[in-house]
Nucleic acid binder design. Structure first.
Lengths: 348, 348
DNA sequence: TTGGCAATCTGTAACGTTTCAGTATATTGA
DNA sequence: TCAATATACTGAAACGTTACAGATTGCCAA
């Protein structure tokens, strides 16, 4: 046995170091190239050799070195989730992350979270990712009808999926919740309870689902013959205090609404607080239909009427979509729309 | 101008490709080595050369290739946040992520989220990270007094920080909320309101802060001469329905508590629901002091008494701690404890 | 027998970076 | 003047992987 002190032996396959292709090559007596190809089931490798290599690889727990692969091929095995650090709903963040990780769990992919803040152009983080080649695929939220990020990534040919749809005549993977249906159903439900002066707490202006929600609300209003009490000064991006104050103001007017449709649970808490600040009672003076992503609103007030939106599902669908695109699928087939549950009153 | 068709010119520094050290070397007329050293302010590079290289690098927007660095040096520039996909509080996830990203924003670090589920050994994801060398630093939560993950990483010499303390006589960076103080203050406050039969809704059994909370609760009880109503069947890891049901059961007994201390906001919602299920009224029949991480509990019931825990701060502190350790600081100096706010009643 | 060809396998180069071991030039001391 | 030394720079090798362009073998048709 020759022992090398300073230099790491060319042919060492011993001890503690993480195994590489070279280790495998030495152990099997094959060339590095052959091992590499055998591991990825290349056709020009003999069936027995392939099995042998794969067996040894499994035995010693070989895992390809990510840096090596990435340097050579450009493939990062990374999916990036781009998040706004000020405006995302907090349940959104955790659920969507879990949804994504669920899907990529048995793939070589890692999930990196790329944040951006209010002050930044939302395009910044995306540009960074693309320019530095930091990810094979990107997931973005807060999608706009004419979304520069989607356009940018489409131009550069980097796979992505959007939470929410765009409206630019360009085709790309997305997952969306049917907010049109949500708003429309909410209105119909309220009308069914005799409410006919309705206010809408909208999603952030500028995002695509704002438009969907407003349209669903408006269409159903005219369908059931109810009328809208304008409440445009409020959207779910605002602070709890703002929403609460504005709601209280609104509810003290005599032309106040007798029903609300709210696009987010946190806003709903504020709405209810505002209603009660004005001395009115939920369920008697006014009904509120709200979206929620966790089952907490009914604990808050049983009189609330809720519709569930599943962000974990959204995360999974988005991850599946990006992976699909990376895998070469047609982007047009990687689009999904999630149908709202019916409006649910408190059940015993 | 010679144009090479198939091969990429050895000396090309033209068009669209991302600039590398080679590009910079060509542009400055220096060797690749010199450029590399000049960019990292090595002493043996002439002052003018250094400035020149750095200027050009900035001009053309050079960014080191992560794969190249990682392959050569083993440095990943990645921090991994290890999360349990079933039991983490949802506000915890989003806030801690934002806290971490805030700190690493102007560093070369990326944040990757490494999940593990109920069925898995919590050591699994950590072992994976260490074995594959996927991160320079790790942040873990749900810390236990004798935590195999901390021990493992300490043995392997990989920098990490824990959310919550361990109790193994080993020193490592952590950030923790002073749950002993929280529980004790809560008890004192309740006693001040004349409540003297108190129940504790504990953190998950087995985690370090369970012990801290229980101890703070017990010590303050004897200090103020109040007594504990055992409620050991419930912890904040359980489902909303479970907690609610158990609470209702408890509150129907005649030896029921007149005060609760709750370690998490979601559990508190269930506690209150259970109290009301039993026909009792918050603030009259019973008081509840609860930790919360977002300011929502007072919207839920004004009678609630809250103490704020800032997870975003925790995320920042943890990130700072890991980066500090990576940077060579003494782990013993990278520990922080966050003091609870006082108990806050609803303020107008 | 020979040429051709399929089936398997292999060495070399390259991705972008840093480190090692220099080299070239100027400067110093005697 | 010469050697020693400091200063400023450089090429080659290596990290682990994959793609390219062969190389070797055996078999079969002619």
């Amino acid at each position: 046995m020759d022992r090398r002190i300073t230099k790491k032996g060319d042919d060492d396959a011993s001890g503690k170091e993480r195994p590489t292709l070279k280790t495998l090559a030495f152990m099997t007596g094959l060339g590095v190239t052959t091992v590499s190809r055998a591991l990825k089931d290349a056709p020009e490798i003999g069936a027995e050799t392939r099995r042998r290599v794969q067996l040894v690889a499994k035995q010693i727990g070989y895992r390809p070195n990510r840096a090596g692969v990435r340097l050579r091929t450009g493939k990062t095995n990374v999916i990036s989730l781009v998040l706004n650090t000020e405006h995302e709903l907090m349940s959104f963040v955790s659920d969507i992350i879990y949804g994504v990780t669920e899907v990529i769990a048995d793939t070589p992919y890692h999930l990196i979270v790329t944040p951006y803040s209010r002050s930044q152009d939302p395009l910044d983080p995306v540009r960074y990712l693309v320019e530095t080649g930091s990810a094979d695929g990107v997931i973005i939220s807060r999608t706009q009808p004419n979304d520069p990020r989607a356009r940018y990534m489409l131009e550069r040919g980097i796979p992505f999926a959007t939470h929410g749809r765009t409206d630019m005549g360009l085709v790309h993977p997305y997952h969306d919740f049917d907010n049109y249906a949500f708003a429309a159903e909410a209105v119909r439900y309220l009308a069914g309870r005799g409410r006919n002066r309705l206010a809408l707490v909208t999603p952030p202006v500028g995002l695509t689902y704002h438009g969907h929600t407003v349209a669903g609300f408006a269409d159903a209003l005219s369908e059931v013959g109810a009328s809208e009490v304008p409440f445009n000064t409020v959207s779910i991006d605002q602070s709890i205090e703002q929403i609460r104050m504005r709601t209280a103001q609104l509810m003290r007017r005599k032309d106040r609404p007798d029903g609300f449709v709210s696009s987010a649970a946190a806003a709903t808490l504020a709405i209810v607080a505002g209603i009660e600040d004005a001395g009115l009672k939920l369920g008697r003076d006014v009904d509120v239909v709200s979206k929620q992503s966790s089952e907490l609103l009914h604990l808050f007030r049983r009189e609330l009427l809720v519709v569930n939106e599943n962000f974990r599902l959204a995360g999974s669908e988005l991850a599946r979509a990006v992976l699909g695109w990376i895998g070469g699928a047609d982007p047009g087939t990687l689009q999904s729309l999630s149908t709202p549950s019916e409006v649910l009153p408190y059940r015993g």
